[in-house]
Nucleic acid binder design. Structure first.
Lengths: 222, 222, 222, 222
DNA sequence: CATGAATGAGAATTCATTCAT
DNA sequence: CATGAATGAATTCTCATTCAT
């Protein structure tokens, strides 16, 4: 992804990748500190302790640099998700694990979400479209994972069969994603066990007391 | 040193307020089109069909202008909420109404959310702090409304008494708020009736089939 | 100097002149506070407690306004000088009186000088030329007064006949004028009696001890 | 987003200093042509034949640029003064030399004075304070030099012992400094020999004929 | 006559990007 | 490959001036 342009290949591919990562780290740090619009290429260079021009050797433009940040972070998260899903375990438990896991990862997730949003809302049209496509992909992936768990749960008999899986899946995903805003604003405490328990409970059982038979979901009362 | 061309002077307080609103409308449109960072004061002026300087006559700075946008939109939403809550009606119904209502308002809400986020992530430190305070206030208000409904429901016997009201309330609020992202990305259809039904069902009954007695919320099986 | 333009003559000529003076006062105050370049017409209007547009009714432009300030202040000073010169008194005494008088007026003179300089150095080419002409006129006048006193003194036998009257006159004038800078910078105390005595002594007798016969001024020894 | 056109890169410290000087030269030229307030950074860039942004690479702001101009010019003048004062020569002769020297330097001094004044009267509060401090320092230095010469002369017996050295010193300094205004206005000719002779004579012997014994300085006649 | 809203021509400054060294 | 000086388009904001009311 970083084609050389002029002279010799002074360094090994490892060095190259290392410097690339160093720049991406710096970019991520800037993103976190000031967001996309207010982060300058100089900031990134300074943070990475390299020259301004060097950044441009590794990434052709500011847009590309930050897109690469998104890509790298996305890949990280995705690769963390896979082993979990491969575990032999009832769907309901996996769902609970994901919810619980999310809140225990909450140091990173919000940064990511905020960083991505800052690109999304601060960048030019072209980058915005690319980033939207990326974010949409991530969401699609997550939605699918949750939706699959729900479907699996239906087959297991643990999930209500009349549930609208796509929308419920999407709801759970955004809920986990966006709750960080409330935490960030100090409106709810960042207390992972309590969050996991409360959100898990809510997701599994909803608000209402059980009795009203669950088959009247889409209509009024029977 | 500066020959002008047209002129449309606001003299009465009403005219003033109208021009102010005209500028705020333009700013909101720009916010929607390009976000905060990429919206220039020239854009706003052009959109409002007035001179660059005129914007500064009504608002002392870009920050103040967009903060005023947030304020106005916020006030709008708030004032729409109040009559609903005042209606004599069971809490569970009000909750359902709010969920349903949100999705029917979904033409505006996402714009608002996106617009606010674009300011939040694109602005300088000072504005960011002011805006965070504002957004936090709105969230606090909404959280309270939902939490109160849940508590009311508990007293009515329609809401599960063991529910963690603050976190569940916050969860419902962000769920309604952030679902727009998924819609925006085209991942779920903007079909208000279906959304209202599915999300309403999810919020009320959760995912799981009922049988497991509802008192084991935070633990495993009884 | 302020030709009416549109409707009726609502006010008496006195009122007109009074408002004109009020504006000039405000302009002088602004000049004193922030200098020409940093004084805005809004500042002047605000200081005069009138509307922005009103200033333009009395003065066609910023340049004209401040030129009028200069004119008025100049006239004031000039009219104070005349009676002094008309007094029946030896030239040497008049010179001494002027020096002494200058330092006792020192609350105003420096302001004036600074104000004029701020216009001179901050204004556009056209105004600069007009102002230079005005200032040159004032200096010419003062130079002439001093030069005349020196010549008169020569005739009286109190002033050294070999003195270069024009240059000496100019020297005395700038000395009195510019000494304020040193006072302003806190380098010498604003102590009128001491200043008058010391400068008077210096002007009258110079630095050197007397003996070297005064006719060898421009050459070596006689 | 910004296609460039030419390029002339300074790499070595000498090149850097040269470019810095080139910019300072341009700034000094602008100062001379139009004064501080009317000189724009674009003017400076154009005069120096470089890009607007380059000026900002070398100087962080307009204020800093012009402050650097003052600093450089000040240092120049100061360094010219020192060798003169180190010469083994009677104080009276040094004084005469300084007076004479000033008028022969008169091509530069007035520019300097005018340039500094234009900053002083056109700049914002912060720069004004810094510049005042600088100018005060220069004046303090010059005053001290002249005052020391006078004191030295008193010890030599060539200067009148009753002279008020600080005020007389300050008077001589401002006289030399400000006389340029009169020359600039065309009120006296810029004829260095005549100026040196006439001002030298005036400074040394004052206006009056000698006889009145020199000890009655601060009073009337004995 | 008075007012203040409206206007647009700059001015200072920032920053992504290029390129000579 | 790396660097940082150079560049100019773009942005925010100011202010003299005009003119509808």
């Amino acid at each position: 992804m970083t084609p050389p342009k002029k002279r010799q290949v002074a360094r090994s591919p490892e060095d190259l990748a290392a410097k690339r990562d160093q720049i991406l780290d710096a970019a991520m740090a800037c993103l976190h500190d000031k967001g996309f619009a207010r982060s300058t290429m100089s900031d990134v260079a300074k943070t990475a302790s390299i020259g301004r021009g060097t950044v441009y050797w590794h990434f052709p433009s500011k847009d590309d640099l930050f897109l690469a940040v998104v890509q790298r972070e996305t890949d990280k998260v995705t690769s963390e998700l896979e082993p979990l899903l491969a575990m032999p375990m009832p769907a309901a438990d996996k769902l609970e694990l994901m919810i619980s896991g999310t809140f225990h990862m909450y140091a990173d997730v919000p940064h990511l979400f905020k960083a991505f949003l800052s690109i999304l809302t601060g960048a030019g049209e072209e980058l915005e479209q690319k980033l939207e496509a990326q974010l949409a992909d991530i969401y699609r992936q997550y939605n699918q994972v949750i939706e699959d768990l729900l479907e699996e749960g239906k087959r297991e008999g643990t999930v209500r069969p009349e549930l609208d899986s796509p929308i419920t899946g999407a709801s759970i995903v955004v809920l986990l994603d966006a709750l960080f805003l409330q935490i960030h604003f100090g409106l709810i405490d960042n207390d992972p066990p309590r969050l996991a328990a409360a959100v898990g409970d809510f997701v599994k059982r909803g608000c209402l007391v059980c009795p009203p038979s669950s088959t009247d979901a889409h209509r009024g009362t029977p």
